[in-house]
Design a protein around this nucleic acid. Structure first.
Lengths: 224, 224
DNA sequence: CGGCGTACAGTACACCGTACAGTAGCGCCG
DNA sequence: CGGCGCTACTGTACGGTGTACTGTACGCCG
């Protein structure tokens, strides 16, 4: 990294190395601070060298996204359909929280790509076997996915905010700015609202509610 | 917008004008393309003039967010608690879909600020009156909010993708890349999954499920 | 009418993504 | 084994960004 005077050897780079290094950089510096130039420097290479493997920055970021999804198997669920949905949902949430950059990538990009097909298959098959119609199965799947996305996004942001003192100060200031006479219930629940802005219990609560709300769509053909 | 050769008169600028012009620019050019320089040009002013009213770009964007939340009243709900939650949730979704830039702002920023306190008050009070404990009310509120956030985010992205032909091509390519032998159910439901990636019906489905799943918490004393 | 505070302008810097052109090392063929 | 071509890398450059610092002239108040 230090010696930039010598030309880098012929095959120092490959897509996988670039992607993993990019991921490391995103984790340490943050997604928004990530730049091709910083990545190139980290690899001991000129910025333009990256364009041998990726047409542009967006394509590289897509590759990072695909790489992250490929690292974790989200589809090894079994048992009753509720449990399968829970398993996929919690797995996805864990992945998203473990890699906040992935969350930012998904939030600024329209597609999640085919690498999540396995997870979708698990969810949708469980629903179909439980008696959901095609349409309801698709709808339930999308509802579940968007719920996990929103919950993880919010939780991740709150975690990030709580990490530095400046953020905590802002949080407190925001809460203090809420008028007690106009919004007495909010003030009364201030502690609970702050406490439930993240965490496993909060996620479990919403996930359980959502899945329970899906139960009426099963066909009562089960004889138990 | 007009002649840039003459110095702009003394009080051409004010925070409100800046914010609304910025909002217009975001709507026409997109949030990520929005820049202080473009905004200044639109206002017929040098880029640095904006710094008289906002310390930096982030602060301006926060002001845009607050402005958008202030334009719509999300809290005029009445009736049973389920209906009140629906009302607030659909109102929030409409606001987010109407202003995709707001979605992008929320997705890249940790706080939603005190301007949503009215909506929170409505939701939380309805839940409390329905018999939710403090903790469960807070959790239900956060679940509802994150669900709406995720659903609107995903829907907005899908809408954007479906607008240009290039995006539609990518969507089709993604679907075609799913292996039929590995993921038969996904392929079988391809049409439904594509159809339910947005729209009022999809949102209503998930919202209804979530709210139904909250009903067991209404009685203050319930045995787990 | 004169001075002053401040709302604007101008210049400059560091950084970004990336287009385009050049160069040097590796692998292959003679 | 020698030379050559392909291509992985380098260098330079352009137009863009946010914003720090400095200058300037306008409108208000004494």
């Amino acid at each position: 990294m230090s010696d930039k005077r010598t030309r880098a050897p012929r095959n120092t780079l490959n897509p996988e190395l670039i992607v993993t290094t990019a991921l490391g950089l995103m984790k340490t510096e943050g997604v928004e601070a990530f730049s091709l130039r910083a990545l190139a420097k980290e690899l001991g290479v000129g910025p333009m060298a990256l364009y041998t493997y990726f047409r542009n920055k967006d394509e590289l970021i897509d590759a990072v996204r695909d790489h992250l999804f490929s690292t974790r198997k989200l589809s090894s669920a079994q048992g009753p359909w509720q449990q399968q949905l829970r398993s996929v949902a919690t797995g996805l949430r864990e992945l998203l929280l473990e890699h906040p950059c992935l969350l930012r990538i998904l939030a600024s990009r329209p597609l999640k790509g085919p690498e999540t097909a396995a997870a979708t298959e698990t969810v949708v098959r469980a629903l179909r076997e439980a008696g959901f119609s095609k349409e309801n199965a698709a709808r339930a799947h999308t509802s579940l996915f968007t719920f996990v996305l929103g919950a993880a996004l919010w939780e991740s942001q709150m975690n990030a905010e709580k990490q530095d003192p400046e953020g905590r100060r802002r949080l407190r200031a925001t809460m203090a700015a809420v008028s007690e006479v106009d919004y007495p219930t909010v003030v009364d629940l201030a502690g609970e609202l702050a406490a439930t802005s993240g965490g496993d219990a909060q996620f479990e609560f919403g996930l359980t509610a959502l899945i329970m709300g899906l139960e009426p769509f099963t066909t009562p053909r089960r004889s138990s």
